[in-house]
């Protein structure tokens, strides 16, 4: 469980402090898929980064599984961070390492008793044949799959997704959403997704927080679309959109 308790976050700008988040109180339940939506600059990425303590709150506290992550020693902080997986908008793969080496990287940093193997996670995301390729040889969607595989290999309790599909086209976005749904189905992990793309939240999340100017306006239960995702080839979708009145 992730709990925000009256969290404020301010950044020191040159002339005046920038208020990124104000008075955030929120709980995200264990095993749920939770979305955070809002326009650019609404503070949603900052909110996500408080969960794995990439940022520290100015006021208030954030606790993950009962541990206050805003107030840990460096060593304890690393211990907390290693239990949380994260994927990024720009994928953040190491370009000089192969896909297999990228995926295995977290296991070189810490011991994970319940870790999966590189082959298992690559098979899970459908890239078992790309193990020896370099990221520059992959498409955007494939790179994000590698990012997901890298996050999964440690079997984290929580997966944080920072604009996971914003650098991808619509068809690839749906592919990634399908992979994330499969992650949730098979590993039952808590998934927190930050994005400005509403269809992603609609497809993936059970609940969502709507943010504006650093505040949570509302937390809602998402009405999931019942119809199965209908992935059309790009050229069909292009014709449909461009010839529509």
């Amino acid at each position: 469980m992730i709990e925000f308790n009256q969290v404020d976050k301010m950044f020191d700008e040159k002339d005046k402090p920038l208020i990124a988040l104000s008075d955030i109180t929120l709980s995200i339940h264990k095993g749920e898929t939770f979305g955070v939506v809002g326009e650019s600059g609404a503070g949603k990425s900052t909110l996500l980064r408080l969960i794995n303590a990439l940022e520290k709150p100015t006021n208030g506290s954030v606790s993950v599984n009962g541990i206050d992550v805003s107030n840990l020693s460096k060593k304890k902080l690393r211990q907390a961070q290693k239990q949380i997986g994260m994927i990024f908008q720009q994928f953040n793969l190491l370009n000089n390492k192969t896909v297999g080496e990228n995926v295995h990287l977290p296991l070189e940093l810490h011991d994970y008793p319940a870790a999966l193997t590189t082959d298992e996670v690559l098979r899970f995301v459908g890239l078992e044949d790309k193990k020896d390729s370099y990221p520059s040889q992959l498409s955007g969607g494939q790179k994000q799959r590698v990012g997901i595989a890298r996050a999964l290999i440690t079997r984290p309790d929580i997966l944080l997704c920072d604009e996971p599909t914003s650098a991808l086209d619509q068809n690839t976005t749906e592919e990634i959403v399908e992979v994330l749904k499969k992650v949730h189905r098979e590993f039952k992990m808590t998934i927190v997704v930050v994005t400005h793309e509403l269809p992603v939240i609609k497809e993936l999340c059970e609940r969502a927080a709507i943010m504006e100017q650093g505040e949570i306006r509302k937390v809602i239960t998402v009405k999931r679309s019942t119809e199965q995702a209908n992935v059309k080839p790009y050229h069909e979708r292009a014709i449909e959109v461009l010839t529509d009145d």
Partner: peptide
């Protein structure tokens, strides 16, 4: 940021 998020 990635290194930090992995607790490196």
């Amino acid at each position: 940021e990635t290194a930090q998020s992995m607790g490196a």
